[in-house]
């Protein structure tokens, strides 16, 4: 369970939010409303007010890198620093490339040959392979065509249910939010406003 109390960053103030295990909370809002900033603050990459706790342990009780290993942020734009894809993965990474729509194992590929969409799918797999306990996803399917978007959503949902991760998922697309969200919040001015969605009603 991921819980935000009196949380504030940028123009967002006094947020109270609880995400249950296995729950996908979708977050939407106009660009510049602070969605990415909020995720960065929850991952403790930016200074912020208030508190966030995961399963009872508060952010400041853990060294920052251990917190981030548990509450893992996957940014919209992925970064790659080694020459080959596989060097970014832990050695015991579960082979999930088929479910993500790759016809061949991409771990031996050169990073410079990857397309934007391939990078995005691989960065999700890379994050999940590190064994997080909660996920913060920033537009995880923004650069994908409809087929791989469908595959990626399905795969993400299956993993989230399997492990019971609380998830905050930033999305723009109404259809996607309808499809994946258990709850939906929109950023309105300084606060989060709950938007009713089909799956919860």
């Amino acid at each position: 369970m991921l819980r935000l109390t009196h949380f504030g960053v940028g123009n967002l103030r006094d947020l109270e939010l609880t995400v249950q295990p296995g729950e996908i909370l979708c977050l939407s809002g106009p660009s510049g409303s602070g969605k990415t900033r909020l995720l960065r603050a929850i991952a403790d990459l930016d200074p912020h007010d208030g508190e966030v706790a995961f399963n009872g342990s508060r952010q400041n009780d853990l060294p920052a890198h251990q917190w981030r290993r548990r509450v893992m942020l996957v940014p919209a734009e992925s970064q790659w620093w080694e020459e080959r894809v596989g060097a970014h993965f832990p050695l015991d990474a579960r082979e999930e490339w088929e479910a993500l729509g790759f016809s061949d194992n991409p771990l031996s590929w050169h990073v410079s040959h990857l397309s934007t969409g391939e990078k995005q799918r691989l960065s999700l797999w890379r994050a999940l392979a590190r064994g997080p306990s909660a996920l913060l996803l920033d537009e995880p399917t923004a650069n994908l065509d409809s087929h791989s978007r469908y595959l990626t959503e399905t795969w993400l949902q299956a993993r989230i249910r399997e492990h019971g991760w609380p998830v905050i998922w930033v999305a723009h697309d109404e259809a996607q939010i309808e499809g994946v969200a258990d709850r939906h919040f929109a950023i309105v001015a300084e606060h989060l406003k709950e938007v009713p969605c089909r799956s919860s009603s």
Binding site: A64, H65, R68, V74, P75, S78, Q79, R126, P132
Partner: peptide
């Protein structure tokens, strides 16, 4: 961006 991406993955 690379450094922050590595921090996000939980690297010290």
């Amino acid at each position: 961006q690379v450094i922050e991406a590595r921090l996000m993955l939980g690297q010290p």
